[in-house]
């Protein structure tokens, strides 16, 4: 956090006045409207909001995978025009190549970036061992559980040593128990691999458990309705969920989400 002479503090990832309009055959969808935020190096920032509020769209714009209609996304002081080598992305769907083994899937970005496989093989194996998949290196995706596949996808996003990790609801397809395990695993992984993380979720508890700061988003058009810092010290244990402070913060966030609907609807995220 102190080695940031190059970038101004708090601006490692920056979105300024981002708007996104999808024009489809059926009409025009205003997916995002004047989104601005920034994120310091090493921070864990969550985008929290109900389905359809534009979280994925925003993350894809930050990743350089989708152009913004207006405004500017920048990473490490450079405007994002296309995908960058210092960013790793984890999608909602693990998107593994079904014909490749676990290890070959993790090495896929290395091949695509035309780097030397031999230089990264050991790192890939070490990452897989770290997430408990050391015995599954030669298995193929259909032989793994949903949680295991998403762990492979996380290793794949980390293998080329990016500074930034962008994650789009990576655990939303998993059952509640597996999801808690994955949250603990991610917290643990980030202690050893310091990354700046932008994390999309519709789960309030997940956001509170993982983040340093939470941006609450509302829909139609997608916009930021509240910003909440998360004051809990790290490392964080699962018992944190039972503390009064945690429960109070969850309640405050739920309130903010409900307000984003104009108070008419109850119960936002899952």
């Amino acid at each position: 956090m102190l080695d940031m002479a190059a970038e101004p503090a708090g601006r490692f990832i920056e979105a300024s006045q981002i708007a996104k309009i999808y024009e489809t055959g059926g009409g025009v969808v205003e997916a995002l409207s004047s989104i601005s935020f920034d994120c310091a190096q090493g921070d864990f920032l969550s985008l929290l909001g109900p389905s359809g509020c534009g979280k994925s769209t925003l993350l894809m714009i930050m990743a350089g995978l989708e152009p913004a209609t207006d405004g500017r996304a920048s990473v490490a002081g450079e405007v994002v025009m296309s995908p960058r080598a210092d960013v790793g992305v984890v999608f909602q769907d693990p998107t593994l190549l079904p014909w490749r083994t676990t290890l070959e899937n993790v090495l896929f970005p290395i091949e695509m970036m035309r780097l030397r496989r031999s230089l990264y093989r050991d790192r890939a194996v070490a990452l897989l061992e770290e997430v408990g998949l050391g015995k599954f290196l030669t298995k193929r995706p259909h032989e793994l559980s949903g949680g295991m596949r998403q762990r492979v996808a996380i290793c794949r996003a980390l293998v080329h040593e990016p500074k930034i990790l962008l994650m789009d609801e990576p655990f939303s397809a998993l059952d509640a128990i597996t999801r808690d395990q994955m949250n603990a695993l991610l917290l643990d992984l980030l202690i050893r691999h310091a990354k700046t993380v932008l994390f999309v979720t519709h789960s309030i508890r997940e956001a509170v458990m993982l983040s340093d700061r939470i941006l609450v988003m509302g829909g139609r058009p997608g916009r930021i309705v509240a910003t909440e810092p998360v004051p809990f010290a790290r490392p964080r244990a699962p018992e944190l969920e039972d503390t009064a402070e945690f429960v109070a913060l969850v309640a405050r966030l739920r309130n903010a989400i409900e307000h984003s609907y104009g108070g008419h609807r109850a119960g936002g995220g899952a």
């Binding site: 296309s82 995908p83 960013v87 992305v89 999608f91 998107t95 896929f108 695509m112 035309r114």
Partner: peptide, 22 residues
């Protein structure tokens, strides 16, 4: 699978690599 193509773009793959590997 369009998700695989998006993954390739995220990895800065060139089209000949997408062709051979995906």
């Amino acid at each position: 699978d369009p998700n695989l193509l998006r993954l390739c773009r995220a990895c800065q793959a060139q089209e000949w690599q997408v062709f051979l590997s995906v």
